[in-house]
Write a protein that binds this DNA or RNA. Structure first.
Lengths: 194, 194
DNA sequence: TTCAAAAGTTGAACTTGTTCAACTTTTTTG
DNA sequence: CAAAAAAGTTGAACAAGTTCAACTTTTGAA
């Protein structure tokens, strides 16, 4: 199976048996997404949660002024979820778009609930994953408040060089919360001195 | 017992029996914290998770330049946690300070683990709580990127008027990510027009 | 392979928010 | 209650980041 990556990823977060992994994996379906296609678009209800096997996705929202705000990027081994829409089955504020031809494993809401009921370890898994994600969001907010755009840019490209390499400057700037014009100026100033 | 608030709060997130609630509550110990005292300070390992019964807390970090960044405030019914320090038992980056005389229920790490092992519903509870918190952090990041300081100030005071009423302007500004001088100017401009 | 669309660059004027310093008001504490 | 400390206000100069418009470069599709 092509589920090795998912199995490894789960084993990093919880102690789990192979048969439990089999059960979990049996609920996921593979799907390919072409470059530019949307797995979710703003206004729709999110019916799937996804685990990225290959490729790259961008999760973003568009505000009232029409600006794109990127929440995160997801490459191999990352999860794609709009917790709000999936949990409450309300229309999503988010768009999830493939930045290259990609492969994901998807699980729908009713299967996810079956899994939760059937295997308590799945509750633990998503509890641990959510708490780790929370830590990351808190740290990002702190960086947004205490670092300049330039520092944030370098932090991003140094922390995720493989992801940054796949992205356009516009996509990076929408993640950093700055205009692409200003990112261009940051890069120029970064070459000249320090 | 004075555990009613905790029991109600848990019942809002998961289906649970009274005897399970009894078990959970039995692991929590009440504690009073005097105004100004710290439940946690930066550099220490966080040994407790807390549920606020009364009073008000501020969770914040101090960056290299000495600026305070407030992650959140917690009043009656809110949880106090430094997931990073508690989960990994590493020194905390956070301070948790009582802004008034307060009462909390505390649970330590080993009891929390006992609870997780004993009652799967506790895994579910914290999974649901963490996912709700994640949604809130994502929304806050979006607001930080697409709203001005003035809009964020009004959003905060309108969403949490009871909390805002307990806070100094310096505390609010450290939550909004602006200087207290600028908050003062926002308030003045808000009176004159709009 | 060409040409249209998207991405990136640059500069000038502008807006938002910061810094610092001086001052006033409120709160706390001996 | 008096003094000290903390909080809030104000202004002027400044820094960080935006906006808009013109331009160049790269990418992709017919």
């Amino acid at each position: 199976m092509s589920n090795d990556l998912l199995r490894q990823s789960i084993k990093r977060d919880v102690k789990i048996t192979d048969s439990q992994l089999d059960t979990i994996c049996s609920y996921f379906e593979p799907r390919t997404v072409k470059k530019g296609d949307f797995l979710l678009s703003q206004g729709k209800v999110y019916k799937f949660e996804g685990f990225v096997l290959e490729g790259c996705f961008r999760v973003f929202t568009i505000d009232k002024k029409g600006n794109e705000i990127t929440l995160y990027f997801a490459v191999k081994g990352w999860w794609l979820m709009d917790i709000d829409s999936f949990m409450n089955q309300t229309p999503s504020d988010l768009n999830i778009q493939a930045l290259e031809d990609s492969k994901v494993l998807l699980i729908n809401k009713s299967n996810k609930e079956l899994l939760y009921d059937q295997l308590p370890v799945v509750e633990k898994l998503f509890r641990v994953m959510s708490q780790k994600a929370l830590i990351a969001w808190q740290r990002r907010l702190i960086r947004n408040h205490c670092q300049t755009a330039k520092e944030r840019y370098h932090h991003f490209t140094e922390t995720y060089p493989e992801i940054a390499a796949k992205l356009t400057d516009r996509q990076i700037s929408s993640y950093l919360g700055i205009t692409h014009e200003f990112l261009s100026k940051i890069k120029r100033s970064g070459i000249k001195k320090e």
